[in-house]
Nucleic acid binder design. Sequence first.
DNA 1: CCCTGATTCGC
DNA 2: GCGAATCAGG
Length: 205
Amino acid sequence: MEWSEEIIAQLKDLWAEGLSTAEIGRRLSITKNAVVGKAHRLGLPPRPSPIRRNGSKPKTAADKPEQTTAATPVPETPTPRATGPVAPSVPPVPPAAIPTPAPVAEQAAPAAAAPVIASGDDKAARKEKAAPVARSTTKPKTLLRSISDPEPQKRRGPACCWPIGDPGTPGFHFCGATPIPGKPYCEEHAQIAYVRLRDRRDSVA
DNA sequence: CCCTGATTCGC
DNA sequence: GCGAATCAGG
């Protein structure tokens, strides 16, 4: 795996988006392990993890004598990030205070390197082998949309919100294609976004 | 069982 | 440096 600057940028962005490691991996066509591993090496801020490995180490079995001199330069400053992995918390914002709903625009950024998945991603493809219904377990994106703006497509021309390019850079834009009714993405990108979580695991490799 | 992320360790 | 295997909590 070649971690080019671009790929790393995407990883960082998606990571910052709060997407799950598996989700990021899916979009980059890599495994979640790769995502996590790289994220660690990059020193990306860890997200709320359900577990903490400690206590026993069957592998190394090497104990770690705590140095008393190691004061504690690092108190506890993780990242005050919303715990929502894929579920961006929706504060009670008054409807009137939302001039521009912006459905799920900033939900993620696969960036320009998305061609692979957009065209013929093997994993994503086979995952969609029989997905008549978006039965995804983790897709609050639509939820966010519905609550922030009940009927967006009624007031404006719906456009696929799949991000193209690196956010922040001059070529960045959204797909803009006509999305599937009820979804923020066009058919093409919806297939990528709404993946059947169960099949992906062994599908890799 | 499913999901999740973290760490370890062979490469 | 990389990531699969493994571990571990919800």
